[in-house]
Simulated assay, not measured.
Amino acid sequence: MATSQIEVPTPVDINYPDSDGKPMSDNTKQFRWITVIYYNLDWLFSQDENVFVAGDLLWYPVEGNNKLRQAPDVMVAFGVKKGDRGSYMQWKEGGIAPQVVFEILSPGNRLTPMNQKQVFYNRYGVEEYYVYDPDRNDLSGWLRGENGLDVIEEIKNWVSPRLGIQFDWSEERLQLLRPNGEPFIGYIEISQQLELARQEVEQERERAERERERAERERERAERLAERLKALGIDPEALD
């Protein structure tokens, strides 16, 4: 009598798209803020291989569900290796959810999608959530407590527990400060600083070259003087 074998169903391959088809930003101001926050945080943690910083990257929190996703403007995941990714599939990252998320608003943002984002971030483990509207200079923040994300009541001069950066916010402007007090800067300022550093290095190189040439001339002059003294029958060392 032949025995029948139970067929074990193979898991269906699920495609997790790397793009949701939405633009990264709606205007130059929003884009500038996103890139400034992203690059400065990436720079801040550049020496730590276990801090992953990304911008506009799709985050899938649940394996098997490719509809459940968000693309934070900027997110930071501690305990996750640096490296390129098409998307952030949490089950492939040791189950670690991004701990810090930033959203930069534009005039095109609507209340319902933003509320949905907050529910998503609250449900799937974000510890710190910051929303900034550069047109209105309106800053809001949430910090995870016992019952989920709680509003940060005093956001002025707030220091992020995870990032160590300060939100130097007033009614006039928002300035983000690194842990050492230096402000976040944009690409132009970074380029200017790099150019100044390059000029200082070049000036130091030129100074060192002039010093080397001066020392070489002094050595040659001393050798010529010693030769003349020897020609006169005088031992130059006896003059020391």
Rank of each mutant, 00 (worst) to 15 (best):
M1S: 06
I6V: 05
T10K: 02
N15K: 12
P17V: 07
G21I: 05
G21M: 02
K22H: 03
M24Y: 03
M24K: 11
T28L: 04
F31P: 08
T35H: 11
T35F: 05
V36Q: 13
Y39S: 03
D42I: 02
W43Q: 14
L44Q: 14
S46I: 04
Q47P: 01
D48L: 09
V51P: 00
F52M: 14
F52A: 14
G55A: 13
Q70I: 09
Q70W: 06
M75N: 13
F78Y: 03
K81Y: 06
D84G: 14
G86V: 00
Y88H: 03
M89R: 15
W91P: 08
W91H: 10
W91R: 00
E93K: 15
A97Y: 06
A97R: 06
P98S: 12
Q99P: 01
Q99C: 11
E103L: 01
E103C: 11
L105P: 12
P107K: 05
G108R: 09
N109W: 05
P113N: 01
N122F: 01
R123P: 00
E128P: 09
D135A: 13
N137H: 07
S140N: 10
G141S: 14
L143G: 01
G148K: 13
L149E: 10
D150N: 14
K156W: 02
W158C: 08
I165Q: 06
S170K: 09
E172Q: 07
E172P: 00
L174A: 10
Q175P: 04
R178V: 02
P179R: 12
G181F: 01
E182A: 15
P183L: 12
I188W: 04
Q193F: 08
R198A: 13
Q199D: 02
V201C: 00
E204I: 05
R207W: 03
R207D: 07
R207N: 11
A208K: 15
E209C: 04
E209V: 04
R210F: 09
E211R: 15
E213K: 14
E216N: 07
E227W: 08
L229W: 08
K230G: 06
G233C: 00
G233N: 00
A238R: 10
A238S: 10
D240H: 12
